[in-house]
Design a protein around this nucleic acid. Structure first.
Lengths: 189, 189, 189, 189
DNA sequence: AATGAATGAGGGTTCATTCAT
DNA sequence: CATGAATGAACCCTCATTCAT
């Protein structure tokens, strides 16, 4: 029976094992051994794919961002027009990514701040969306920041208190309508 | 010269040393030795004040929450009435606690979720405030959650991009006015 | 029962244990664990006295040189005058340091050449001796080099072939007489 | 293009790669991987030619001795008669083998003493030479030992202090004349 | 003959915790 | 109260060796 697998797959399996460990105990409390046991390989195999434990964590972060942005784009595509589209984006965002948001926090809030601040791709995407729908906002970027963090906080709250889910989603919708003003087409004529 | 100090002070100095280490490198990358060196005591002294390293971190979290809530209350007292009061609360909150928010994230986002979800005292305080000013809200708790996380996110954004400060504060004010509806006193008669 | 010992002693015991391991298997094939077991302490104790394994080896070399030079001086003191003194120095040197020469090779011949070549203290001491006895030599330093290495080689040979001991010592004496010319005092009048 | 080569050549290339690694860092700090990379083959190929890493080192030593003795013989052939011949042998030896002596030390001084002491082929060759030229020595073998180690030491010294080269060669010549007595042919008649 | 992914025992180092002073 | 030498479990990483292709 062949033990070897394509490099990409092995690497991916190691990342999967690591990710599930991070979700269980955080970024700093798993061992390389845990990862290799989880992936069903020997310890040495780990080092065929990652130079060291730190590079694994970096790779985990990179994979997270790639995945997240991809899903955001997907959600945006199915949404409708105007404020409703932002609303949809937010509701879908909360709904879809509840699990990932937990992973997000575990992966990114432990980071020591990078010396050069990096943009938040989700905020940027939302900013784009606000412009696309022609929202009449004094500072669309600032609004995007607020909406993003509100979404994040709501998802976080729901993780802690699942029973509040419906109320929180309603508030999310109200927030969108309250904050995002789109001039009615017939009025602007 | 006597080396002994009152227990409370020693404990506090140890917490101070630990806190500054957390701010520098996160919760997981300091050693008990770092703490005692920072506090200028011998290693063994640590264990006269904390049962183990974990209790130190817990104590750090407790101290943080106590401090934070105290400051929030102080800020609320100086504020005016109605929506303006919430606005003030938010602006003051962002302004005052920028530094602490970093500590907050470092201390709390690495936690493994407690099995019994704990309430967020800041959200509760805001909830109280909303009721005090007689805001006419369908779900004041949900609004408190949104406002709290928006505040948190705005502060976080400012930490990364200080140049956005004024714009973000303006958006924070707009958020309060958009979300919190207080019936004019003369209309409710 | 107290486990603690003065730092110097512990360090010395660790060096002793390491030295005996080097004599058994060479510089590169002992483990830190071997050393601590040999010294009767826990593994961690090693790192209270040496920053890492490499520093131990360096310390071993330093200790060797200190000891060796001290013994050389002692041997020189007991010797007589003129060529006989060099002869004595050589014979005593071979005799006394047979064991150490093995340690010497094990410690120093594995070194990667230091970028700044270091003088050989033994050669220097012999050079001094040649000058003291007023030897009439074209190049006393070169003679010191030759004599030192001959001595070293002879000791090395005896370690391999103990049965050749007497013959080799005789040759050593002959070498001294052949190489070191001291003008007879009455001829220089 | 076929990747296969005759066994002898592959083996030789692996030895070459290993030798250059030894010269750079000593016998104990290269890996099998270093060797195969150096030889431009895959890791597994190593084990087609050597049972294990130790056998490689042994092979390196054997190859060294073979080469060295061959060169010694060559040098002896070009030399003249009598003491001059020994002198020539020594000078040529120092001159030619400066580089190899470094390899020699790296290869042989790290060895754990073999239980059955092995003869030094160079000393034996010199012993033969002394007999050939009819030197009148009490103990030609002992003289060979002394001369060999003096030569070795002189070469070693020159490696460290190249500026001493000429002086050391002069001393080498003086050593030969002082130690090796060859009866004048016409006196023995 | 050649490959290189996979293995896993082993070694260096860290660090939370203990305890005799 | 305070000390700090000592402990030893645990972890990251290396590398000689194997084996299915």
């Amino acid at each position: 029976m062949p033990r070897t697998k394509p490099g990409k797959q092995r690497r991916s399996e190691l990342l999967d094992a690591a990710e599930s460990l991070v979700l269980r105990n955080g970024v700093d409390s798993f061992t390389v051994d845990d990862v290799t046991v989880g992936a069903g390989v020997a310890k040495g195999t780990f080092y065929l794919h990652f130079a060291n434990k730190n590079e694994l964590i970096t790779a985990l972060r990179e994979r997270y961002v790639e995945r997240f942005v991809a899903r955001q784009r997907e959600a945006a595509r199915t949404a409708e027009d105007g404020v409703a589209r932002v609303e949809q984006w937010m509701l879908a965002g909360i709904d879809e990514h509840l699990a990932d948001i937990r992973l997000h926090d575990l992966l990114f809030h432990t980071m020591t701040r990078p010396e050069t601040p990096t943009r938040n791709p989700s905020v940027d995407a939302l900013h784009d969306l606000l412009r696309e729908i022609g929202a009449d906002l004094v500072d669309p970027e600032a609004t995007a920041v607020v909406l993003y963090h509100a979404m994040h906080g709501i998802a976080d709250h729901i993780v802690h208190f699942p029973q509040d889910r419906d109320r929180m989603l309603a508030e999310a919708a109200r927030l969108c309508r309250a904050l995002v003003v789109v001039p009615a087409p017939h009025l602007t004529k």
